[in-house]
Amino acid sequence: MSKTRIFIETGNKKTPEHNFIHYLLRTIFGDSFTTDVEIINVGGKDNLKNAANQFAENTNEGGKNLLIFDSDFTGIDNGGYEARKKFLEAKRLELKIEFEMFLFPNNKDDGEFETLLDKIVNKDLHQGYFNCFEAYENCIKSHTDDNGVQKYNTPNLKGKLHTLMTSVKLSKEERDVLGSGQWLFDNKDYWDLDHVELDPLKEFIRNNMAK
């Protein structure tokens, strides 16, 4: 059977991004997906050349490649949905590789992996935490240097979600694997993998799997 290879931007498997894709695939296809889908960590858009053989190999074997990267933000490091899409299309030509592409958060807007996570996090159960974090960000936003430039980055989505996961009460076993990116994506107390915001990504994966 042909394989689907999903290439993601993170550099290793001990990251929330890798684990999220893993649990999302389980949500879509059940446990059986593990034999014919492989998640490959590229290590950044500028590392595609080093992963190019992994694309070519799967294409040669009749498999399909999906690339799921961040759109990032317009005006920052050539980011933004349109600019990033163009960049990756140019890379596809340059490296002579084949892949279908989806850019976080929803394949049309600027944003990143955490933008999508922020949509599916269980805000109802952790409303108090989010209110506090908002107040904290409002507070640090007011701190500026002598030129009036903000000293701290806000909003900080990565920090907000990371702090949530390290703040909640967890068992020792759950806490021990947090650092490996195991953010309990299958636990409804934190994440909703059935959220409507995930539909574009799920549809992309379903439509482009190797047959």
Binding site: G43, N47, K49, N50, N53, Q54, A56, E57
Partner: peptide, 17 residues
Amino acid sequence: LEALLYDYEQLDYVIEQ
């Protein structure tokens, strides 16, 4: 038959991964 070529950086990448 296809031949895929790995330079040092590409080799390092696959081993690290």
